[in-house]
Structures are given as C-alpha cells and as structure tokens.
Amino acid sequence: MARLLKFNIFRYNPQNPESVPHMDEFVLEETDSMTLFIALNRIREEKDSSLQFDFCCRAGICGSCGMVINGRPGLACHTKTKDLPSEITLLPLPVFQLVGDLSVDTGSWFREMYNKVESWIHTNKEFDPAAEEERMENEVAEAIYELDRCVECGCCVSACGTARLRDDFLGAVSLNRVARFVIDPRDERTDKEYYEIIGNDEGIFGCMGLLACEDVCPKHLPLQEQLAFLRRKMGITAIKNLFSRKSCK
C-alpha cells in the first residue's frame, strides 16, 4: 500500500578528487508521518553512509536543513513526504558555498553578514547591574520579535534571483535584520548611518522586488513589508542627503 519514493539527490564531495557532481537515485518505502529528516537519515544509515546533509533541531526551529526540494528552497525537517509527489529531487541551496552533497556553508555567509550590517545594538549606554531595566512597551517588544524570528536558514537568499545574479547582494535576511534594529529603540543609529550600510545596490536598492524571499520563508516573515519599509525610509534619506550639503562626505 505504501508508496515507493524515488529520491534524486545531488552528490558531490569536493574533498574527493574523483568525485564529480551528479545525481544519485535512492528508493525508499514511505512510512507514516515521514519527513525528509527521517527519509534522509534512513538513506544514510541503510544505503549510503557517506551522504552529507545538515539537520540539527529537526523541529523547524534552527534553520539548519535548508535545501532545494523539488525546485523550491525550504526546510527539509518540516517537509512531509506525504505532501510531495513520489519523485523527489533534492539539491543543495545555491548561493552558499557547497560543503558536500546537500550540505552548504551558511555559517561563513551569515558571519560576514553580521559584520556588514553590524548586527548588534549600537548604544553608548553602559549596563548598570544595579539599575532597573529600561522600560519598553510590550507591543514594541513583540514587533521586534516578529522580525527576530528569522532562523537564518538562507532559503530567502537562495530563492532570490538578484542574489544569484550578484553575490554582493545582501539579501532579504540581512535587510530584515537591519529593519529589526531600525525599530528597536535601544539602537541609537540614525537613518543616515543605516543609509551607509544598506542605501546602495548591494543593499535595499539592489532588491528588484522578486518576492521569492517572502514566498519561501519558512517562518513567514513579512519580508515584502520590511523591504518596502526600508526602501521608503532609505529613499527619503537619499533625497534628504541630496539637499543637505553637510551630509556630502
């Protein structure tokens, strides 16, 4: 009764001089509540123990398991085979450096991103252990968290045509990160300072509004709204800059 699932999986081990990129086929019998996490582990344990892929939380929380599933970037651990046709094609996420098979190096990409957008609170205030915390409205906190929910899976970057065309494009995830700090009252950066970071074609003005980012984001972040918010804000800043002589560096 159970379906036979045919997996076409991208294979390439850059560390093996004899390895060439190719697709391997594996067949598994489908079981109840099977996810790609279960399927891939079974393939590794039963059929080919060298198969590389990344999982960590297997609960859709950590963002480790981004891969291209039948053409679309998504999280493998919360993809149920039941929702897929019996032929399943798995590719590693593009844009990121390939480690092997389905595993890519998102870590280096994101570390660079943190430094580019200075992904931390900029403040001159010192922490005082004896003082009460600074107050914040709960709605503000929730709005920040809404953007903080990103799990850095990289799906939005891999799905973005702009990012694939130009590797210096920051991608929706980084821009969303900036938006997170823009709305955080603790961050003292001004619009002009943000403009220095994202007010260019590597940043917000590089985005062509393809919206694949929004459509694949497994956490359903409001990326389109955030990108638009930044575009308006930075657009206005650009015009202001133009008219205020002082700002011309």
């Binding site: 931390w120 609170i121 403040t123 205030k125 922490f127 252990p129 003082a131 009460e132 915390e133 600074e134 107050r135 914040m136 409205e137 709960n138 503000v140 906190a141 929730e142 920040i144 968290y145 903080d148 955080d184 603790r186 961050d187």
Partner: peptide, 17 residues
C-alpha cells in the same frame, strides 16, 4: 541581573502590560 543585561544587549523580552 543577567536578564537585565540581556535586555540591554537587545533581547526583546515580553513586558508588563
């Protein structure tokens, strides 16, 4: 103290309404 420090670093703790 540690929770407050985290707030200072940017954790968006839920707040009293």
């Amino acid at each position: 103290i540690e929770m407050r420090r985290l707030a200072h670093w940017g954790v968006p703790w839920n707040r009293v309404v």
